[in-house]
Simulated assay, not measured.
Amino acid sequence: MLSDLVRLRRARDLMDRDYAEPLDVPALARAAHMSPGHFSRSFRAAFGETPYSYLMTRRIERAKALLRRGDLSVTEVCFAVGCTSLGSFSSRFTELVGMSPSAYRARPHEQGAPIPACVAKIFTRPVRNAEPAADAQAVRRGEEPVRNGEAKPSARP
């Protein structure tokens, strides 16, 4: 329903804007004027991931930017982006980025300096699962998405 989508976008905008604040599903559901259960189900159906997953992706994106600056410790970055547990932050960062926050901070980042932040954000967004990107590339080439390791030509002209 269109009105639900508008309310879900309001909650998503809240996460984008206030990612460093202590946000939880009941608070986000209140912002969307929905029950927590309905909000979680609707959010996942509309955006393809849970509200918590979306929020953590925003936090990791911001953490990557702070770590590239190099003037904050990993612990300071963890708390600056709204995480309350260094262990959970490090685990999620490693899961999404492919390396620990310390390793990410230590690697050189000068090559991306001339790229505008809005463009860099698109290409450095943490991706939980590479399959959707591979599926999108297959569709652009006119093939069916990869299933069981085989690409099949599309029946489309």
Score class of each variant (00 low, 15 high):
V77W: 00
A45H: 13
L55Q: 10
C78N: 04
P153G: 05
M1P: 12
V139Y: 07
V81T: 05
E131D: 14
S85E: 12
R147V: 14
A63P: 02
P36G: 08
E150Y: 09
K152Q: 11
E131W: 10
L55G: 11
T50S: 15
L86R: 06
Y54G: 03
E61M: 09
M15D: 02
E61S: 12
V6C: 07
P145Q: 14
S53K: 11
H109F: 02
V127S: 15
L67W: 02
Q137K: 13
S85K: 12
S102H: 06
A103W: 03
R69L: 04
Q137D: 08
L2N: 10
R107S: 06
L55T: 09
I122C: 03
R68Y: 00
S3A: 10
C83E: 14
A80Y: 11
L14M: 09
S42K: 09
A29W: 10
P26L: 03
V6N: 06
E144Y: 10
R58E: 04
H38L: 14
P126R: 09
Y19P: 01
R105M: 12
T75Y: 04
G112D: 01
R9F: 08
R92H: 13
R69N: 01
A134K: 06
V25E: 13
V25Y: 03
S35Y: 13
I115E: 01
E150P: 04
D13Y: 05
A130H: 08
A117G: 03
G87E: 14
G37N: 15
G112R: 01
L23V: 02
F123G: 11
M15P: 02
V127K: 15
M15G: 01
T124Q: 12
S100T: 15
A63T: 03
S85H: 14
T124W: 04
T50Y: 07
A65M: 08
R92P: 05
G82F: 00
P132F: 05
R128T: 13
F43K: 02
G149Q: 04
A113P: 03
C83L: 13
V119K: 04
A133C: 12
S53N: 12
F43L: 07
K152L: 15
E76I: 00
V74A: 00
A27C: 02
H109T: 01
A65D: 08
P153E: 07
Q137Y: 12
H109L: 02
S85T: 15
A133D: 14
R12N: 00
L2Y: 07
Y104C: 10
E76A: 06
D13V: 03
